[in-house]
Design a protein around this nucleic acid. Structure first.
Length: 887
DNA sequence: GCCG
DNA sequence: CAGTACG
DNA sequence: CGGCCGCTACTG
């Protein structure tokens, strides 16, 4: 653990080290000072606050909100994982209830007429603030409450600020609510604002919008009012939330408002956060009247021309403009790609697609170098699209075979780039006295003393394997086989790998335990080959990994006998007749086997399969049954450790919600299963739900298709049982369990749980009392009782959940106004020749005079998305929800 | 159900 | 205070 | 084997 601690602390230290102050950066680049904005200033404060937490390794969160959709937050100690996972536990259900909170609030307001404007906002603030542990909650609240948001703008822009000041503070997410637990700290960190102009003007949505949903610009969002800004921010979130969660349809059709403008501005190939998905947001930005926004826009459009340019040319250009780009990069992003000279292969040699350009920009932005041509002498990495075609690649590079890719050059897919932990590689590792860390520079040294002073422990990097571009070259970039110099010193590696919890500095001779505690990592340790380029994660300190790998489990492995007593059997001993065999062959074979596994076998058989592969890979492995097991064990432990680090908190990444992932079908099934358990009362089921949540979440963010039981098992949060289920789904496409457990009672109960304020207990009770439908509940069938909260929840239940995003305005109007207000409003609409219902304001509806129910003409919808719009058309002054009470 |  | 639910 | 989010927030 302390190794972990060290790791995180060290990482944090490094991350905290560089970079100019944000203000300076902003001032320099954008002529903008955060202090101008209270909100930002506040955010800034918090962003610095965590320093005092240095002792407590936390999420190392690099600000890369500009491309959050691609960002990976590094890490957390695995044992803390659950903290946040819990946070997301109810994500889905909360989604379903998107609206509900509002209900409560609006009700509150309604119930307490004394809540005037000001207090209404305060209520809001309180609500959002209290929920600050869940970013989404903001969205939700805001979504629901909508009106206040808007109201703050046009109606009483002046009167607000004083009251809202605290609101801003409270709700601006950024602040790690002082009274929150450590989990909140994560959140706080996580949300820590990108000190970016965008965030000020249009809200973080710009940066984080990872959906292709265009943000529909609305008047209030363009406000300058700082207070309003906050709202707008939420508003943005809200829109996104609603749009993506409540109704997906709208995602499909580009928002009417955003479409036109975005088309003209769309995604310049600038070294900015140019994610194509941001285009919508950018469109909005384009409408921002703000000067600084304009400046920004200008800067971006500088390179936006979309020419037909080859990747090579584009890369070249990036090279040429490097300094310029670097400026942009400076404090915006952690230069975690520093020193990496990447040859990017996008598949098409003739035309640098938007994607290609974007990626190249990205590489530059994060400190890497894009090398226009394939030159093994120069490049340190090869990055390809997710599914590169080998022939195309060969053509592009002029190679004859993938085998010709030099061993030391990792050949990985783009996912590797974006998933690699954001770690700043220290320019000058303190401990190493200025030794260059340029990944490429450290070739396998010939100096024997490296064994002592270098801690780089070549380990199979699962990360590399996972993201390897070609299955035939999984080993590209992996530690090369030991030179046959025979400086193999198993014990040494073993020792260092197993070094104790006390944080040893890299050059410190590892004062590990005695040989009895030999770590299994030693089995795979190929001496210290100085090929850091293999250490993608830059885990220079091997003890860290060693510890991870060895762990409590590894300790039990009788490693010593093998390593020490029978040196020849050591994997890194190349004395057998296969000098070519990479000691890491087992890894490759394992991984390759997984990749190639066409027909998925059951857990057992696939296990055998892999084992066989391993045996084939290293001859000696076949002769050592123990080794075989160890390999498996190690792979498992190691992979998991890596994945844990890579994935970080489950709550770190934005909800990928409906974004189909590589294992979507599996996810769907598991979700079904989870729902089943959700309806049950037992503690056991409760925890299963919890677990499935975690598993599902983990699965979602898993980049590649699961190939076999082991691979699933390696994912943190997925254990034996779930892995089995996954396997079943993979094989049969179904989960039998779901079939016979899915019964009507469960469905009814789950439906009840959809009501705000109703959980499993209540739902079950209702069902037990004979309720089967919502109407039953409404009728209080079985004499059931509802709490006030539940009453309201019920009142607003079903309809709202099905309100399409486009109708939200009308729906909000409908739900927030009381009976009289609504009638009045609708009557007025009628008198004006319109027709208003919960879906929208219609024009031109012609009804049969004799039968008013019969519509002769459907009419056209003229407003529905926002309340303001509707009210404006109807000539009704804006009013807060709590003011819409006439009865 | 997963994890330590 | 404990149960229940929320985000 | 026991813990699994919250110095929750609200309700009764």
């Amino acid at each position: 653990m302390s190794d972990l601690e060290w790791f995180f602390r060290e990482e944090k230290r490094i991350l905290d080290m560089p970079e100019e102050p944000d203000e300076d950066y902003l001032a320099r680049v954008y002529g903008y000072r955060p202090s101008e904005d209270a909100t930002v200033a506040h955010e800034r404060g918090t962003s610095e606050a965590p320093i005092k937490d240095a002792d407590r390794p936390r999420e190392l969160n690099v600000d890369m909100s500009e491309s959050l959709n691609e960002v990976q937050k590094v890490t957390v100690p695995p044992e803390d994982l659950h903290i946040n996972q819990g946070m997301t536990t109810k994500r889905k259900s909360s989604t379903e209830r998107t609206v509900d909170p509002s209900v409560r609030h609006s009700k509150k307001r309604r119930l307490s007429p004394e809540h005037k404007k000001g207090s209404a906002s305060v209520t809001l603030a309180h609500a959002t603030g209290s929920a600050s542990d869940n970013p989404d909650s903001h969205e939700l609240h805001q979504t629901s409450v909508g009106p206040p948001t808007d109201a703050a703008g046009p109606q009483s822009p002046v009167a607000r600020p004083p009251i809202q000041q605290p609101v801003v503070k409270e709700t601006t997410i950024t602040s790690p609510a002082p009274d929150k637990g450590k989990a909140r700290e994560h959140e706080a960190n996580h949300v820590d604002p990108p000190l970016h102009p965008y965030s000020k003007s249009t809200g973080r949505i710009i940066a984080t919008n990872n959906d292709k949903q265009p943000d529909v610009p609305s008047p209030q969002q363009a406000s300058d009012d700082a207070t309003r800004t906050t709202h707008a921010r939420y508003s943005s979130h809200a829109k996104r939330t609603v749009k993506s969660k409540v109704i997906e349809v709208s995602t499909a059709n580009p928002g009417p408002a955003a479409a036109p403008s975005s088309s003209s501005v769309t995604t310049p190939a600038a070294p900015g956060p140019s994610s194509s998905k941001v285009s919508g947001a950018r469109a909005k930005k384009a409408e921002e009247p703000k000067p600084k926004t304009d400046a920004l826009k200008k800067e971006k459009s500088g390179k936006k021309k979309r020419e037909l340019i080859t990747p090579r040319e584009y890369a070249q250009r990036l090279q040429d403009n490097l300094s310029e780009v670097a400026a942009t990069r400076k404090s915006r992003a952690s230069p975690y790609l520093r020193g990496k000279r990447i040859y990017y292969h996008g598949g098409d040699m003739q035309y640098a697609s938007e994607e290609t350009r974007k990626r190249m920009d990205y590489i530059i932005r994060y400190g890497g170098t894009v090398v226009p041509t394939y030159d093994p002498e120069v490049i340190t990495h090869i990055v390809t699209t997710e599914k590169p075609s080998a022939p195309a690649f060969l053509r592009a590079t002029g190679l004859r075979s993938l085998r010709d890719i030099p061993n030391h050059i990792p050949t990985v897919t783009w996912s590797w780039v974006i998933r690699a932990p954001r770690r700043v590689i220290p320019e000058t590792p303190v401990e190493k006295g200025g030794e260059s860390t340029d990944v490429a520079d450290n070739n396998k040294g010939d100096k024997t003393e490296q064994i002592e002073d270098s801690s780089s422990e070549p380990t199979a990097d699962y990360h590399l394997i996972v993201h390897a571009a070609f299955k035939d070259r999984l080993d590209a970039g992996m530690p090369p086989p030991p030179s046959n110099k025979g400086r193999s010193k198993p014990q040494q590696s073993a020792t260092s790998a197993a070094s104790g919890p006390s944080r040893p500095t890299p050059q410190e001779p590892k004062s590990g335990r005695d040989g009895s505690d030999t770590s299994i990592i030693s089995e795979f340790t190929v001496d210290r080959v100085e090929s850091k380029q293999s250490a993608i994660l830059d885990f220079d300190d091997s003890s860290f990994l060693g510890k991870l790998a060895a762990g409590p489990n590894g300790a039990g492995v009788p490693g010593r006998a093998t390593v020490t007593d029978n040196p020849k059997s050591s994997l890194n001993n190349k004395s057998d007749s296969t000098p070519e065999v990479d000691s890491l062959a087992p890894f490759y074979n394992q991984a390759r086997a997984e990749r190639e596994a066409e027909d998925l076998r059951s857990g057992l058989s696939s296990e055998e399969e892999s084992a066989k592969e391993i045996g084939n890979g290293g001859k000696r492995a076949a002769t050592h049954a123990v080794s075989k097991k160890r390999v498996r064990r190690f792979v498992h432990v190691f992979c998991r450790a890596i994945l844990t680090l890579i994935q970080g908190f489950l709550c770190d990444s934005k909800a990928e919600e409906h974004t189909a992932c590589a294992n979507q079908d599996v996810v769907n099934k598991l979700q079904e299963l989870r729902e089943l358990h959700k309806a049950k009362l037992s503690k056991e089921d409760t925890w299963k739900v919890y677990t499935y949540d975690k598993a599902i979440r983990a699965l979602r963010s898993y980049p590649t298709r699961i190939r076999c039981y082991e691979e699933a098992l390696a994912i943190p949060g997925i254990g034996d049982k779930t892995a089995q289920k996954i396997t079943e789904i993979l094989q049969t496409g179904d989960l039998r369990r779901i079939g016979y457990e899915k019964t009507e009672d469960i469905e009814a109960i789950n439906m009840f749980q959809g009501i705000y304020g109703v959980g499993r207990q209540t739902a079950y009770k209702w069902y037990a009392n004979g309720c089967r439908t919502l109407d039953d509940v409404r009728a209080r069938k079985g004499g059931i009782k509802l709490s006030t909260c539940q009453e309201i929840g019920l009142e607003y239940y079903a309809d709202f959940l099905t309100v399409p995003y486009e109708s939200r305005g009308a729906a909000l109007l409908y739900y927030t106004g009381d009976d009289i207000f609504n009638r009045s409003l609708r009557l007025k609409a009628n008198k004006m020749g319109y027709s208003l219902n919960q879906r929208g304001l219609y024009q031109g509806i012609v009804r049969n005079p004799s039968n008013k129910l019969e519509k002769l003409n459907e009419g056209t919808i003229i407003a529905s998305e926002t309340e303001e719009e509707i009210l404006r058309i109807l000539g009704v002054p804006w009013q807060e929800p709590h003011e819409r009470i006439r009865g």
